[in-house]
Design a protein around this nucleic acid. Structure first.
Length: 561
RNA sequence: GCGCCUGUAGCUCAGGGGAUAGAGCGCCGGCCUCCGGAGCCGGAAGCGCAGGUUCGAUUCCUGCCAGGCGCACCA
């Protein structure tokens, strides 16, 4: 099901292609192949319900003036069976189609029948896609940037699922490598300090207060026992304890944010399983590896990257990059046709390297799609809050949810494109919470629910669309609302195509606006039973679409506020 | 220096080769004997600068200016 708008668009496109052929046969136009033209919804509704640029595109091949071509096409087009009321040639050669005003009402029974599934499209045809997002180091708490990634990733995954993909959401746990060494040293220093002994957190270590709390917890469990062991054993115990605690905190915070995962993938497991070794061997067999200065290098330059990259350090320890290559190899080996990563802009330099490695392993680099999300700049009290895990100053995801609320926070992130450099003013988000756009949308949903409560209180029931005379819906506000509802499948298709939840956020806001306008101008429950029934079907369909849209954005659809 | 992202209304952001560039906040002025005023209606206000491609550029290309982020045997 692709919705009535797509159906109409396809029917018009077919009729236009046939009109080109028919005009050619009758000598009204030179015989030419129809070019790639569009049948679009004009920005101005004065320009009809659909318009096409076909005549303008034919001007050159047909050596004829666009408006003359448009005339020939209109003379030769067969529109029987289509709800077209009027066709007009306008401007430089647009052909505008005006449909019967009530054609949009056909969407209403469709929405009622599909319910929670209304808007599903089959873009993905069941193909498997993986979305990896957040993947923050389990050495600390989640910050605003992670929160943005979480909101975006979760919504993108939901939208892709709704667009017919088989989606898996994954979190890559960086529980190995240099930073874990660093983490261990930092924990150890705090451990010593808490016993009044000398200990210094390394400059590149983790200075946050949360680490101190973690070590206190460790001491409650293990006491001073690890003062007396060797450093390796001490650090290993500290790291194991701290990673478990931090990961649990991350999972808890994400769950509270309404974000769920299918797979939590450990970097350490790639070391343990030999996957990294196997990956390096595969690259070597393919001739993309060489040794120099004691290190093992990847010939990234053969894939257009500026310089070659180290896979294994002179110390014999694989780099993060090597592990990441093994991880992506694993993703493709698991059979995902598309692998989508959401990264912060501070990692964008890693993109060409990662694609190069994917190509070197024999996979299509275009199958790896990396969404670069610009950074979040946080304001509080009119001043920029610098966020850095190492400095220990940041606003956590949990604090964010507590301050501005889960729905408001998620909407704020998801209403902007990943490309936008996001200024997040905490005070503003909190102060404006009553006027926050998310409440505007949710209020529309709650209002409709209220109408149905009224209905129940009067002992009335919700009519079925099929048993109602929908032609009673004639007002502009009613038809505009129905028209917007009919757009929903197309919006899903576009949002999935562009991996752009913000499109959907705008859509639900606009839909809510149309509902509010309608609601303010007309009563749903009136003395006219037939009209009441028709309007109930209309607002019921609106409620369904609002709920579906909110759900895909990770927002609740409250029945009361 | 090189690379990526971004310059659209006072602020925060959408849009995008075509026919009158949108929203929220803020500002100004209106609307409830009626299903929820977290609402509605109206108003003022804008495509960083300069070239180029095109029948047509705010959209594509180039340069410049400005901001963000990168350019490790860190991740």
């Amino acid at each position: 099901m692709s919705g009535i708008v797509e159906t109409a668009r396809e029917q018009l496109a077919r009729a236009l292609r046939e009109a080109v052929a028919a005009a050619g046969r009758r000598g009204a136009l030179p015989v030419v192949e129809p070019p790639d033209f569009v049948v679009e919804v004009p920005r101005e509704k004065e320009h009809g319900d659909f318009a096409t640029n076909l005549a303008m595109l034919l001007a050159r091949p047909a050596r004829t003036a666009p408006r003359k071509i448009a005339g020939a096409l209109c003379d030769n087009i067969n529109l029987t069976g289509l709800p077209v009321q009027r066709v007009e040639i306008a401007g430089p050669g647009f052909i505008n189609f005006y449909l019967q005003p009530d054609w949009v009402l056909a969407a209403l029974p469709e929405i009622e029948a599909a319910g929670d599934d209304y808007g599903r499209v089959d873009q993905g045809r069941g193909s498997r896609v993986q979305v990896e997002f957040v993947s923050a180091n389990p050495t600390g708490l989640l910050h605003m940037g992670n929160a943005r990634g979480a909101a975006l990733g979760d919504s993108i995954a939901a939208i892709l699922d709704f667009a017919g993909y088989h989606v898996s959401r994954e979190y890559y746990i960086n529980d190995a490598g240099n930073q874990i060494e660093n983490f261990g040293l930092s924990l150890e220093a705090r451990y010593f300090q808490l016993f009044g002994r000398a200990g210094e957190v390394p400059e590149q270590g983790y200075h946050g207060e949360d680490i101190v709390d973690t070590v206190r917890g460790f001491i409650r469990r293990h006491g001073e026992r690890y003062l007396h062991t060797g450093p390796d054993e001490r650090r290993r115990a500290l790291v194991e304890y701290a990673l478990a605690e931090k990961l649990t905190a991350i999972k808890t915070a994400l769950a509270a944010f309404g974000v769920r995962y299918d797979v939590w993938f450990s970097e350490q497991s790639l070391h343990d399983s030999g996957a990294i070794r196997d990956t390096l061997r595969q690259l070597e067999e393919r001739g993309y590896v060489y040794s120099s200065e004691g290190a093992l290098w990847f010939k990234a330059r053969e894939f257009g990257v500026e310089k070659d990259e180290v896979l294994v350090r002179a110390s014999g320890i694989p780099t993060y990059y090597a592990a990441d290559i093994a991880y992506h190899r694993d993703k493709f080996r698991r059979g995902f046709g598309r692998v989508i990563n959401i990264w912060g802009a501070d990692h964008h330099g890693h993109v060409p390297r990662m694609k190069a490695a994917v190509a070197a392993l024999g996979y299509d680099p275009d199958a790896l799609e990396i969404i670069i999300m610009q950074l979040v700049r946080l304001y509080r009290g009119g001043e920029i809050v610098r966020m850095s895990k190492r400095s220990g100053q940041f606003v956590t995801l949990e604090e964010l949810v507590e301050e501005v609320g889960r729905d408001a926070a998620r909407y704020f992130f998801v209403m902007r494109s990943a490309d936008s450099h996001l200024d997040f003013d905490l005070d503003l988000a909190r102060a404006q919470s009553n006027d926050n756009p998310v409440y505007y949308v949710q209020y529309a949903h709650a209002r409709i629910c209220s109408i149905f409560r009224q209905l129940a209180a009067r002992g009335m029931t919700v009519p079925e669309a099929g048993k109602v005379d929908l032609s009673r819906l004639k007002e502009e506000a009613e038809l505009a609302l129905a028209r917007k509802l009919a757009d929903f499948p197309g919006e899903i298709d576009a949002a999935a195509r562009d991996l752009a939840p913000h499109r959907l956020a705008r859509y639900v806001h606009e839909l809510a606006g149309l509902l509010h306008s309608f609601y303010n101008a007309y009563r749903v429950i009136t003395d006219d039973a037939a009209l009441t029934e028709a309007r109930l079907v209309l607002v019921g369909a609106t409620r369904t679409v609002l709920a579906n849209g909110l759900r895909l954005l990770g927002l609740s659809a409250p029945e009361q506020m």
